Amino acid sequence: MAEILALPAAPFRGVAWVLDKVARAAEQEYYDPGPVQEALAGLEREREEGLIDDEEFEQREEPLMQRLEEIRAYQLGNVGPPDGT
């Protein structure tokens, strides 16, 4: 009987599940260090090629390094067994 009463809520649970999956995927993408590391490598190439000077390099490097620190702190805070979802 309880299962029949729960049927009207099934679409809402499905939407909540999808929204949870989308939020998790967005979170994983936001905390992916790859793009930040690529930006740092590109920045280093620009400096080596003489496209930017040391001052501009440092100005542009600082926010990227802060972002990497934020990502690492997030990853350290979320270490644990995978939940299997």
Rank of each mutant, 00 (worst) to 15 (best):
Leu43Gly: 02
Tyr31Pro: 13
Leu40Ser: 00
Gly84Lys: 01
Asp83Ala: 06
Glu62Thr: 12
Ala25Val: 13
Leu40Cys: 00
Glu56Val: 04
Glu69Gln: 05
Phe12Pro: 00
Gln59Lys: 11
Glu61Arg: 10
Leu68Asp: 02
Arg24Asn: 04
Glu62Met: 09
Ala16Pro: 11
Ala41Gly: 00
Pro82Lys: 05
Asn78His: 14
Glu27Arg: 10
Ala23Ser: 15
Glu49Cys: 09
Tyr31Ser: 10
Tyr30Ile: 14
Pro11Glu: 03
Glu44Cys: 11
Pro63Ile: 07
Glu55Phe: 08
Glu62Trp: 10
Gln66Ser: 11
Gly84Ala: 02
Leu19Trp: 14
Arg24Gln: 07
Leu68Pro: 03
Leu43Asp: 01
Leu19Asn: 12
Arg13Ser: 13
Gln28Lys: 09
Met65Pro: 00
Arg13His: 13
Pro63Trp: 05
Ala39Pro: 01
Leu43Lys: 01
Thr85Arg: 09
Gly14Arg: 07
Phe12Gly: 07
Ala16Trp: 14
Glu58Cys: 01
Leu19Ser: 11
Ala26Gln: 14
Arg13Phe: 15
Arg72Lys: 07
Asp32Gln: 04
Pro33Phe: 06
Glu55Thr: 13
Arg47Asn: 10
Gly84Pro: 02
Asn78Arg: 05
Glu27Gln: 11
Leu40Glu: 00
Ala73Lys: 05
Ile4Pro: 05
Asp54Ser: 11
Arg45Gly: 01
Ala26Cys: 13
Gly14Val: 08
Ala16Asp: 13
Trp17Pro: 00
Leu76Asp: 13
Pro63Thr: 09
Ala9Asn: 02
Met1Thr: 12
Ala25Gly: 09
Glu69Leu: 02
Asp32His: 08
Pro11Trp: 04
Pro11Thr: 03
Lys21Met: 13
Arg67Gln: 08
Asp20Leu: 15
Val18Gln: 04
Asp53Trp: 03
Ala25Arg: 10
Met1Ala: 12
Gly80His: 06
Val22Ser: 05
Gly80Leu: 07
Ala10Cys: 07
Ala23Asn: 14
Asp32Ala: 11
Glu58His: 08
Val18Pro: 00
Gly14Lys: 07
Met1Cys: 06
Gln75Ile: 10
Arg72Glu: 12
Asp32Arg: 08
Gln28Trp: 06
Gln66Trp: 03
Gly42Met: 02
Arg60Pro: 08
Ala26Arg: 14
Gly34Met: 03
Met1Phe: 13
Leu68Ser: 04
Glu56Met: 05
Arg67Glu: 14
Glu46Thr: 07
Arg47Pro: 06
Glu62Gln: 11
Met1Trp: 12
Ile4Asn: 09
Leu19Phe: 15
Val79Leu: 14
Glu55Cys: 03
Pro11Tyr: 04
Phe57Ile: 09
Gln75Ser: 12
Ala39Phe: 03
Arg72Ala: 09
Val15Gly: 02
Gly84Leu: 01
Val79Ala: 11
Pro81Glu: 12
Ile4Arg: 10
Pro81Ser: 07
Pro82His: 06
Pro8Trp: 11
Ala23Gln: 15
